[in-house]
């Protein structure tokens, strides 16, 4: 999961190109590769095909409207403004927490942990990745949210003048906000960021580290002079992969963030829906084509968002991150 790699040059080939068996096998494997390409292309195509009729029938501006009214198929009014705000706020908050912590963990596991302990420690982080997202959502809303409520209250009382911490649209409730979701998402994307970053840090050329050590550098100076410059692009790529995961997270967000009747004004203490959680919440009502198409249009935007973020990750990594 979450890997970025350049195709390596193919392995050695025999002198003869072989007969019918060779050709058949070559076609079979190329066909499997094509299935992957086709899958991604078809996802885009079918989402567009299903979304366009609803977009045409839409009476509100798709990009600037904050409402999502699909109850009346003859008078569809839907826009993604609030979905975008909630999705970006929760994901960026998660990134702001998970990036420094993930970097720290990757350094701890590669530069500070004795090799005897590296395996069990990395396993611990791996367990974080193995916990299903519905369990994170469950734990987040039932266990974590009440515990961090006083902290949220504190932020709102003393930093409420700043728009991120101003009273939200589900005020005075402070559990089940974007803030809660941001923390849960941070925990969920931590293993992704850590795993990929760690892998790049391990590839730091030995001679660069030894050169720094020979100059009398302390451990931290070795990291600053050799490890970080080498691994920077990999770390950014890893963070992008984490962001992509956070943008598309569905069930944890659906369980954690409360619905809200008034539009968002950009506070972390708002409620509402992300693209993914809105689609999942309405899934049981997918019966008429036009209202369903409205949700598919939201899904299309999410697909484009994650496509772009993952493509950026790949370009930034430039083949350094592998496997």
């Amino acid at each position: 999961m979450g890997s970025v790699s350049e195709p390596q040059s193919p392995k050695a080939s025999p002198a003869s190109t072989g007969g019918a068996g060779e050709r058949a096998f070559r076609w079979l494997t190329s066909g499997a590769g094509l299935v992957v390409v086709a899958a991604v292309v078809l996802i885009g195509v079918f989402l567009i095909v299903q979304a366009v009729p609803s977009l045409i029938a839409n009476h509100a501006n798709f990009f600037t409207s904050a409402q999502f009214n699909t109850g009346d198929a003859n008078n569809l009014m839907f826009g993604i403004r609030d979905l975008l705000v909630v999705t970006l706020l929760s994901s960026l908050m998660a990134l702001a927490i998970a990036m420094p912590v993930g970097l720290g963990i990757a350094l701890f596991l590669t530069q500070y942990t004795p090799s005897r302990l590296a395996r069990p420690f990395a396993f611990v982080i791996g367990v974080l990745a193995a916990v299903p997202s519905i369990v994170y959502g469950l734990w987040g809303i039932l266990v974590l949210a009440p515990v961090i409520e006083p902290f949220a209250q504190f932020l709102q009382t003393y930093l409420g003048w700043f728009f991120l911490f101003s009273p939200g649209n589900i005020s005075p409730v402070l559990t089940g906000t974007i803030f809660t979701a941001g923390i849960i998402l941070a925990i969920m994307i931590l293993p992704i960021i850590t795993a990929t970053t760690q892998e790049v840090f391990r590839q730091t050329p030995r001679f660069q580290i030894e050169a720094a050590q020979a100059l009398g550098a302390t451990r931290w100076e070795v990291i600053r002079m050799a490890v970080l410059p080498y691994g920077r692009s990999g770390f950014i790529a890893a963070s992008m992969l984490g962001l992509g995961r956070a943008l598309g997270e569905t069930i944890a967000i659906l369980l954690v963030i409360r619905a809200s009747t008034s539009p968002s004004h950009g506070s972390l203490f708002d409620g509402g829906y992300t693209f993914a959680s809105l689609i999942a919440s309405a899934a049981s009502e997918f019966s008429q084509p036009l209202p369903t198409g409205a949700y598919i249009a939201a899904g299309l935007v999410l697909f484009v968002l994650t496509f772009v973020v993952n493509a950026i990750a790949r370009v930034v990594a430039g083949g350094k991150v592998n496997g």
Binding site: G2, S3, V40, T250, F303, T306, F307, A313
Partner: peptide, 12 residues
């Protein structure tokens, strides 16, 4: 495309 597919959200 393998990279893109690995980033496709499950809801999509």
């Amino acid at each position: 495309m393998v990279d893109i597919l690995s980033g496709v959200p499950s809801i999509v």
